[in-house]
Design a protein around this nucleic acid. Structure first.
Lengths: 244, 244
DNA sequence: ATGCCATATTTGGTATACCAAAACTTGACA
DNA sequence: TGTCAAGTTTTGGTATACCAAATATGGCAT
């Protein structure tokens, strides 16, 4: 609604700026796959579609760019980031360090209730192992990791983890579809939960690290598979996305 | 220069947008201490002072806010972030994890030349131990850490580290003025350099971690000292900055 | 038929005008 | 004299107009 509202009632609370709201919308679209890597986001067209002016849209684009979700070149239409395998590997390395730290801190900072909640999520995942829908399983998986990070009460850590999380979402989703990957992930999760219960920093930290390292391998095969699929579809055309 | 330049010569390259340039200027001002924590950055006044319009200034403010260098509330004038001791501690914990990871990766990725350069910086610092000017010493100290991170070639890691670096700059500068802190830091640096030369991931990683943990202690005493100084000056007025 | 250059159109970058919500001021009333 | 309320001013939020660079397109010369 780009129109004025001269004085309608009280303007509700409107707690966050339009730019942030737009950023949330776009972020969700990217995460959900409505906007795929490589898709462009022209300013005029998109702002019109969202019924806002270009200014808040540009704010949103700027935020997402700092977060690494989209790429903006000097005079080039903004594009959803399309990380290479190398870059995803780099991101996962950082994420593994962040989560290992989170695990350590969580042993000291997490309340009993928080640990119980984390355990509950793990249990839910165990029961969902045979669920054919990978999306639900994946969401809880991500929630499991988020809950551990949140229990540290370390705001900068939580925020940074969240950003990497968003950038890795797609890659991890693609790689989490394999049944075998799920099974191995659950083993790691089991060790993590056990470590948290005993508040054993070493155990949690190393389990976290191994879990993410496993993710690197899974992503690698996911990339390889996507590559071959693309080649089958377009026969040798598209540029390889496996090299940074 | 808010005026139009109808067609003056060729407009040079102008590689980065005005907003980024402004962000660079403000970031430097904050790092150099020209803008101190708690200082406000009113949009109109600042944009006039920099001879740009509000639009690129707001872009810059937005970037710095995402980076955590300034704080922006809904209808409140932007302010240079004033992290509490708790928050600085949290930041240092994350930074320690990032640098520990950097140390590990550097053992695998750094070239011989890069390691030699890092060693050279260490040597320079050793020779500067008695330099009365803490600023120069500090700059090289920061360069030492940056060089190690850069040698990993992990772009997301480099970028994230840089952001935390900026947020921690002031606190670390204040805490690095103590002679004893410098001496202990040099011991850690020595271990780090030795580890890199032997490409011993465990050694480098643990040395990095210990080094940053030491920094946490130093920051704590620096905060305490600043607190007492403020109390002496203003007699019980200012709100304590030691609690998040 | 093809390659190149001029022009038209699209797109992002910047400036500015306008609006609404806070913050500050001031004056009247208790 | 203290306090509260209304008005003023300041500040950030949003929309829009305009500009320049980049790209696409079509015609012209070879």
């Amino acid at each position: 609604m780009p129109v004025r509202k001269p004085s309608s009632k009280l303007t509700a609370i409107a707690r966050q700026s339009l730019g942030e709201q737009v950023a949330d919308i776009l972020r969700e679209q990217i995460l959900l796959g409505d906007l795929k890597p490589g898709d462009t986001i022209p300013e005029r067209e998109t702002s019109a579609a969202l019924a806002v002016s270009r200014t808040p849209l540009r704010e949103a684009l700027l935020m997402l760019e700092v977060e690494g979700l989209i790429e903006m070149a000097p005079a080039r239409t903004p594009m959803v980031a399309k990380p290479s395998l190398l870059e995803v590997t780099h991101l996962l390395l950082v994420q593994s360090a962040l989560e290992a730290l989170a695990g350590e801190c969580s042993c000291e900072e997490a309340t009993e209730e928080e640990i119980e909640e984390i355990e509950a999520m793990h249990q839910t995942m165990l029961e969902m192992m045979d669920n054919p829908d990978p999306v639900e399983f994946f969401k809880i998986d991500m929630g499991f990791h988020e809950a551990i990070v949140a229990s540290t009460k370390n705001l900068p850590l939580i925020k940074t983890h969240k950003q990497f999380h968003a950038r890795l979402w797609r890659a991890r989703f693609l790689s989490a579809r394999r049944r075998s990957a799920r099974e191995m992930a659950m083993i790691d999760h089991g060790r993590i939960v056990e470590g948290l219960r005993r508040r054993d920093k070493e155990l949690v930290s190393s389990a976290m690290r191994q879990h993410l390292r496993l993710a690197i391998d899974n992503v690698r095969v996911a990339f390889a598979r996507e590559e071959t699929e693309n080649n089958l579809l377009s026969g040798e055309s598209g540029h390889s996305s496996t090299v940074g």
